[in-house]
Design a protein around this nucleic acid. Structure first.
Length: 129
RNA sequence: UGCGUCUGCCGAGGAAGGCGCAUCCAGGCUUGGCAGCGAGGGUCCUUUGCAGAGGAAAGUCCGGGCUCCAGAGGACAGGGUGGUGGGUAGCACCCACCGGCCGCGAGGCUAGGGAAAGUGCCACAGAGAACAGACCGCCGAAGGCCUCCGUCCCCGCCAAGGUCGGUGGCCAGGCAAGGGUGAAACGGUGAGGUAAGAGCUCACCAGCAGGCUGGGUGACCAGCCUGGCUCGGCAAACCCCACCCGGAGCAAGGCCAAGCAGGGAGGAGGUGAAAGCCGUGAGGCUUUCCGCGGGCUGGUCCGGCCCGACGGACUCCCGGGUAGGCCGCUACCGCGCCUCGGCGCAAGGAGGAGUCGGGCAACCGGCUCCCCAGAGAAAUGGCCAUCCCCCGGUCUUGCCUGCCCCGGGGACAGAACCCGGCUUAUCGGCUCACUCGUUUU
RNA sequence: CGCGGGGUGGAGCAGCCAGGUAGCUCGCGAGGCUCAUAACCUCGAGGUCGCGGGUUCAAAUCCCGCCCCCGCAA
């Protein structure tokens, strides 16, 4: 039953969790979304949202959040596991579910690959971390 | 039938299904590691049943509740409101009425007290702008000068001079009716009057002030009499008058857990009174009162409170810790029962629905029924499939209507302590009353 | 969520409280000076005073309502 669920364990809820993801400086973006990411040890991804007031009024911002959550919920199995994501929508774009889904999956995997490369270079040069 | 004015109201696409969110309750698991505690939190599974955004939730423009500021008291300052009467917990809101302005009209707008308490301002233009003024203009009677004519005096006649009368010009001077300026120029019409004129005088009208009568709770309205003839506008300028207002705000405020480290600077004294104790004594000490001084009271003062010599009330500066949770928070509370955690009853509120009564209305009162989001990186959205509603297109045809099919659309907008209003944004529909015009009968 | 401050030529500001003329510096354009450029001198253009109402004869200014920008904190 839990394949499409979106309980609290799949969300970032505290400032410390957000700060950890932003502090890693690992991100990927296209013209729809900007995604920050950092690996976790939980065995599943987690989602956090940052929607600026510059995007629009409250109803418009809520629509963005709901669509991004829906894209995350319906495609959780296709995302990299063990990754915390913070998703920021771009200004001036009309939110659409298929575009958000496509961007989210692509950008999450880009973040995942950047972390893999960083891990390999740290294994080759263990003193530079 | 067209152009308009206006009253009241409804919905916020609907129905049902799935995924998912999410509130309450019960149980299990867990809390970076180790041992213990667990304010509380997180998560999972199952079950139960019930709720789950708005008319503006918005802007934060007013008014309250609630909480804290020392128990919030008086005066001043400051701020707000501004026709009258009513409604209300209260308001800058609502209703009714009055006055003014606009509109042919139905109607609309209206911060609408006081300018004969005081101060100030009224640019430019214009002659003159506040108890004003004389540019053009009108007059120039009485007064002065000049020109010309007539008359009379002097005289034989003329001239000159003088007297009286007249024509014309200039001046002193008079006037404010007309022109022109301006947003605004000390009333309008007519007659008398005069050198020309003028409320200078009179009649009527308009306006002002005072008084009386009648109507209305009142703002005010109607009528009559008297007066002086005139006395501008701006108080959303200061101000005066009447009424109202202490300040901050749920990030208020209370509590729990965890954690830390403090340091520096400034900072006020009388020997006045009483009592007690010590001392042979000069005197010393303690308490209380008085006086003085310092400080706090989030504008000031009074009032109130705290403190006053090796210890300090209070103020300022530097530095350190926390950024978690609970209550407030939405039905607690009260009463009863009991296994002390719940259950039942009842209550609650400027609450909603219905109904009856009062009132022109806003609104009020009685009765019956209902219990209505409580999240906390923030929930109702989104997606999938079906039907109905709205708009456009297409298909047989010149037009209309209906069906099928295709396409598109359903606005403004998201609770964050809670109410009452206002303002602003915005989709669709229903409805009451009425004006002006056109056509027909 | 609550509370403050501001919007004036291209840029940064004055003027607003006590209403009648929108001003200053830099920049821009033309001319002069110079062999030339800069500097300097002279002249000039450029402003719906955020928007809409109201008060007033008259509003950047006073009053009301909206829009936008910036700041503060338990």
């Amino acid at each position: 039953m839990g394949e499409f669920s979106f309980g609290r364990k799949y969300r970032l809820q505290h400032r410390k969790e957000f700060d950890r993801v932003f502090a890693s400086r690992v991100r990927a973006g296209d013209d729809v979304l900007l995604v920050y990411g950092a690996p976790n040890l939980l065995g599943h991804p987690r989602l956090g949202l940052t929607v600026s007031r510059k995007l629009g009024k409250a109803t418009f911002r809520n629509r963005w959040k709901r669509l991004i959550r829906e894209a995350f919920r319906l495609n959780r199995r296709q995302l990299p596991q063990e990754l915390d994501l913070v998703v920021i929508p771009r200004a001036g774009v009309q939110p659409q579910l298929d575009r958000v889904t496509q961007s989210l999956i692509q950008l999450a995997w880009q973040v995942r690959r950047k972390w893999d490369r960083r891990q390999r270079t740290e294994e080759k040069h263990p003193g530079s971390g």
